[in-house]
Design a protein around this nucleic acid. Sequence first.
DNA 1: CGCGTTTACGTCGTTCGTAACGATA
DNA 2: TATCGTTACGAACGACGTAAACGCG
Lengths: 329, 329
Amino acid sequence: MTLTQLRYLIAIADSGLNITLAAERVHATQPGLSKQLKQLEDELGFKLFTRKGKSLDAVTAAGAEVLERARIIHAESANIRALAANLRNEAHGELRIATTHTQARYALPLPIAALHSRYPDVGVHLQPGGDAEILQLLERGQADLAVTSSVGAAPASGFTLPAYRWRRVVLVPEDHALAKLDRPLTLADLAAYPLVSYESSLQPESSLRRAFEAQGLPLRLAFTARDADLIRTYVQAGLGVGVLAEMAVTGDDEGLRVLPIEDLLPVCTTWIVLRRNRVLRDYALEFIVQFAPHIDRRDVRRAFDHGVETAPWPEAPHWRDVVALRSAG
Amino acid sequence: MTLTQLRYLIAIADSGLNITLAAERVHATQPGLSKQLKQLEDELGFKLFTRKGKSLDAVTAAGAEVLERARIIHAESANIRALAANLRNEAHGELRIATTHTQARYALPLPIAALHSRYPDVGVHLQPGGDAEILQLLERGQADLAVTSSVGAAPASGFTLPAYRWRRVVLVPEDHALAKLDRPLTLADLAAYPLVSYESSLQPESSLRRAFEAQGLPLRLAFTARDADLIRTYVQAGLGVGVLAEMAVTGDDEGLRVLPIEDLLPVCTTWIVLRRNRVLRDYALEFIVQFAPHIDRRDVRRAFDHGVETAPWPEAPHWRDVVALRSAG
DNA sequence: CGCGTTTACGTCGTTCGTAACGATA
DNA sequence: TATCGTTACGAACGACGTAAACGCG
C-alpha cells in the first residue's frame, strides 16, 4: 500500500469509476492506474470494485470502507504539504472555492481580485453548484472552502464564519403595476403574480416558500434559475416578478425597477465554510479576510487551529455596508 | 513523501530520537532511516528535528505538526490493513493490551487463555504501566486497547466499556489485632496503622486518600507498589495493613487474613478503553467479550463503528459474579 | 575508543510509459 | 468500430543494505 495507490483509488472513485478519466486527472497513464489498483486489491486480498465485464461497475462495501480511510490519509498528506508550503512562504498554489452562482458573480470578484494582487501566482478555481453539491465538494476535499448562504443558522457541516448579511429585492419592469404602488409592498401583492426566482425556491424548505405558506398565500414560480442574470433577463421579458439577492442588482438595469421589500422576507447570511482538520494555506486566509473584512485574521487562525466551536465573531455586516466600506477604503 | 518515510519518522520520534533504535524496531537499517528522514526534510523544506552535532536533539515545532498528521496517516493505513485482515478472516496477528499489573496478573489470564485457544496464532503483548502511561500508549497507537480501573466515571479518553466492578479488601497477618475485632472495620481502625497499598494511593486524587480526608483521618503509607504480590509479601513481613483489590486475594494466602470492608471505600470499575477511529481486529472483539461477558458482541461493534457515545451497556457485574460465572460455565 | 550519524556505492525491486491485445456495447 | 481495461516489455528511478568515514563524549 502506497500513498500513490490510495491517490489513484480516490481519483478513480471521483471520476465515476472511469480509470481513463482518472488517469488524466492525476497526470498519469491509464495502464499505470489499472496496475496499481490491481496491486492494491491483491495486497488487501479483496476487490475494491465490482466489475461488469472489464469495466468497473460499483464500489464494494469493503471498498467504501477503504475509500473512506484513503480520503483521510490523502487529506492529511495534503495537510502536511500545505503546512510545509506555508512555512516556506510559498506564494503559489491553488484555491478551490465551491460556491453559488450569485456569490461567484457579485460578491467574489473584488475579494478575489484583491487576493490575486497579493498572490499573483495563486490560481483560483470557482466551482459553482447547488447548496448540497457545494458542501459535498468541500466534504470530499475537492474544494478548499465553500461560500454559501442560508436563512438563520449556519450550515451544519464544517467550520463556519459569517461573511455578510443581505436581503432580497423585487425586480419588475418599469411599467409594471407594482412599480406604481404608492405604499410598501406586501407578500399578498407579490402572490398576485407569477414569480421569477432562484432554483432553490423550488425546495419545500426554501425561505421564500415558507414565508408565503406562513401567510397562507399561494406561490407560483414562472421561472427559476441559479443564475441571477437569467432571472433579470426573464423579468425583462415579462415572465413575472423577480425576487433575487440585492447583490445582483447593480443599478444599471435598463427598463427595470428595483423595489425594496425589507421585512417581507427574512434576512440571509452568507457564510464561509471550512473543514476542520484541513490546513489552511496562507492565501486562503487572505481570501477570507478580504471577503469578510470584519473578521480578524488571527481570530480565524486561532479558532480554526484550536477547534473553537463558539467563535465569538462580530455581527456580520450588511452587504450595503461592505460595499460602502470598499468604495471608501 | 511516502508512507514509509512517515512510518520511519514516527519510529524515530517514539524511540527517543535514536535512529539506530528506531531502525531496529521497524526492521530496517539505520542508514536507510537517516536517508529517508533527510529526503523527507528536503522535500518539505524544513528540518523536522534540531541537531546537536550529528545526533537528533529535539522535535521542531513544525516537526511536531507533521508528526501529529503522520500518526493519523499511519493509524489509518493500519486501519485499512486491519479491515482487510478481518475480511480475509485472518486468525493471526498481535493484540497489544496496555494495563495495570493487577489486571494483568489476576483478571486477564483467563480471558487471554480463552482468546488463545480460539486464536492460537495471535500474539498477546501486555504492556504494564501506571494509569497515565496506559492511556498514552493507547493514544499513541502503541497499544490496541487499554484495561484500567477507576472509581466512578470512566476515563475521559477514548471509548470505554465497563468490564466489571470490584471492591478493595484489607489484608493483615493472622495474629494482627484487626483480625480479632468482633465488629466490622471502620476507617478509623485502619488509620491507626501504617498501610501497605498501591502506588496510585500516593496521588492526591486517589480514592483511598480522599476517603480518609473525608473523615479527617491521617493516611500513613508504609509501603507502596504497583504489584499486588509485593503488597502481600510486605504485609506478611509486618510492614503494615494491606489494602488491595479483591481480585488479588486468591484464598491460599499462608498466614494472612482477609477482612472485607464493604462500604468503607467506594467501589471500583474496571474499563476496557478503545480508541475511536481505530479498526478492531476480530480477535480483539473476541477478547472483549471474553473479558466482559455481560456485553454483547454486536452491541460493541455497532456502538464502536457508529460512534455511539451513550452505549447503554448493562450494569457491569461484580468480580465475584464474573468468577462464579466462569467456574459454572 | 565506543556510539551514533552521515556518505558512498552496488544491487535489486518497482514504477512508469509505450505498445499491443481483449472485451464490450 | 469505438471505448475502456488488461497484459507485455523495456527503461529509469528509487529503496535498501553493506561498508567506510566522520564527530562527539
